[in-house]
């Protein structure tokens, strides 16, 4: 049984906190592949937790986790970029709302995977567009530089999601399916 996403019990609170802490810590690590571009594994953390526990957990874990990363790294709180991570978590978690999708029991079909990919990339687009527009209007960054930056982040993060995060999610689904050879009878 999946719990409703609006059910704020103890488990939800702990899940949000631990996911945010994990996302915040892993967000500090990355491998530089170019000037100012890093491949960061933290996307995997956020997407797996969002798919496991739903959009609200994804939103809050992304928002608070990114805030933790920024505080640890020392550049204050850039709430628009934290909200961009939150958007990504939220969109990733939308697949949780399907009744016949359940990663715990390995229930999943091709449509869900396609839906997850599209919503994840939409989440990136929505989040980064929001943060970028805010950077231009409020922070006074040059528009062309922001566009270039966002384009680079969007491409690398989408590639990381499709090439590295999606296989891990599929791996979790497969492993969980192996343990579920029982069927519910009506």
């Amino acid at each position: 049984m999946k719990t409703s996403i609006f059910n704020f019990n103890t488990r939800t609170i702990v899940t949000i906190s631990i996911a945010a802490a994990l996302y915040g810590i892993v967000g500090l690590f990355g491998i530089p592949i170019g000037p100012n571009v890093q491949l960061r594994p933290s996307i995997i953390i956020l997407s797996v937790f969002a798919v496991y526990f739903g959009p609200i957990v994804g939103l809050l874990a992304g928002f608070l986790g990114n805030m933790l990363t920024d505080l640890l790294a020392g550049w204050g709180i850039w709430w628009t970029w934290e909200l961009a991570s939150g958007f990504f978590g939220f969109f990733c978690g939308l697949v949780y709302l399907f009744k016949n999708f359940n990663i715990r029991y390995g229930q999943c079909n091709k449509f869900h995977i396609v839906f997850l990919t599209i919503t994840a990339i939409l989440g990136f687009v929505a989040g980064y567009a929001f943060a970028g527009i805010n950077d231009i209007l409020v922070m006074g960054e040059p528009p062309r530089k922001v566009f270039v930056q966002i384009a680079i982040i969007l491409v690398t993060n989408s590639a990381v999601f499709i090439l590295l995060a999606l296989p891990i999610i599929l791996g979790f689904i497969k492993t969980n399916r192996r343990h579920m050879n029982l069927r519910v009878e009506d």
Partner: peptide
């Protein structure tokens, strides 16, 4: 470089599994 990326990203799987167990423990304690 390819192996470095793979190795870094593979750390996330045990971390996620450990975190799930930690969630259970902390929830039970609370």
């Amino acid at each position: 470089l390819k192996r470095r990326i793979n190795n870094l990203f593979n750390i996330t799987i045990p971390l996620i599994i450990q975190a799930m167990q930690r969630i259970d423990k902390v929830t039970n304690a609370m």
